[in-house]
Design a protein around this nucleic acid. Structure first.
Lengths: 197, 197
DNA sequence: AGAAGGAGTTAACCTAGGTTAATTTTTTCT
DNA sequence: AGAAAAAATTAACCTAGGTTAACTCCTTCT
């Protein structure tokens, strides 16, 4: 994959957000990262202040507690911007790592350099705002689910929302996404099977 | 409070976000809402697609589950933009209501009309993006706390983060903010008292 | 001041989900 | 294909927090 091909999928994504990005004006150096299944793009605690774009593959955002328990915050499928808005914007350490669930291809720019160029482009800003609205809404809906719904309901909602992931990723990662242990998820599935049978 | 005074506090807020808003260009009609302590600006399930600005007072975002249990998503103190980004942007029903904890003064614009005028202003867009970054980061940190920390830790973190609220709002609302019942919070406080004594 | 409704505490009991560990099934690797 | 490792299931037991209810303080209202 050369630079042009990478830019094409980047462009398609911005188009979908209603923006015709003008790559000619962008002189910031771009890095390319190839991540094998299971490997990390960056780890929790790193200074990951880059704008990453997932060209191909599937990743999860994984956050580990002081007691060493893993929690999956997000699954992200290409094409999509990935990374930590917080770490990008506030230059703090990132609260989660990004792990590839399939071999993945990612390009990246230093956020400060990228934004310094793009902030003068009104089309980009509108599109960036749209992106932020979108990720905020997802977080808000998730908060809502955590607070109002049982683990069983969250599992059913997950299956409805991600039918393609439901059978293609390990169950323990689904469990860690809905905020329970693999053992508890297995119990819930057992219960559901009885109910349906 | 007349329109000019209202705009002053609105302006001060945008200034803090790094933007000199030009009110002359804004011809959208503004509404003013006075909410008495305990009353609601809007209720969960409404189409609250307005941009609200809290000029004075204190509110909470309260979300109630199917079983009728209340959950406090956010406390917001003036001066601040309030409202539902989701309902504004996607024109869907809002997932929470906004209740005044003190007598409060709010002004509002129809989001679509407001945004239609402001989207051509690059300074506004930068500032809007900054606002979205900020509220996203808060949600992300809150998700992190819910998933990684115990209720006791969440309570201590709340006290550290909102020392002025800790003693001025009912404990049951603190409980509903950290996601437990008032009874459980009382138990936790009892435990902490023993530990310290 | 006295009544009435919140707000907080305490206690007894319950339950969803956590923990540990043994067992089986599936995947991966050579 | 066969060995080794990882994933999933099941069972027994544990715990944080939920539920209900009684009791005590406030506030606030007339």
């Amino acid at each position: 994959m050369d630079r042009t091909q990478l830019q094409n999928s980047f462009e398609a994504y911005f188009n979908e957000l209603g923006y015709d990005i003008d790559w000619q004006r962008l002189t910031v150096p771009m890095d390319v990262h190839v991540i094998r299944k299971g490997d990390y793009l960056f780890q929790q605690g790193d200074f990951a202040n880059r704008l990453y774009f997932l060209h191909s593959g599937l990743v999860r955002y994984v956050s580990v507690s002081d007691e060493g328990k893993e929690f999956t915050q997000t699954f992200a499928k290409s094409p999509r911007i990935i990374g930590s808005t917080k770490a990008m914007v506030t230059e703090t350490r990132v609260l989660f790592g990004i792990q590839a669930l399939e071999d993945s291809m990612v390009s990246s720019y230093t956020w400060q350099a990228f934004y310094a160029q793009m902030r003068h482009d009104i089309g980009f800003l509108e599109c960036y705002a749209k992106f932020l609205e979108r990720i905020f809404i997802v977080k808000e809906e998730r908060e809502n689910a955590f607070v109002k719904h049982s683990a069983e309901r969250r599992y059913l909602d997950f299956c409805a929302a991600y039918p393609e992931l439901k059978d293609s990723i390990p169950q323990q990662q689904i469990a860690s996404y809905i905020g329970i242990t693999p053992v508890a998820l297995s119990r819930i599935r057992h219960r559901l099977k009885l109910g349906r049978g």
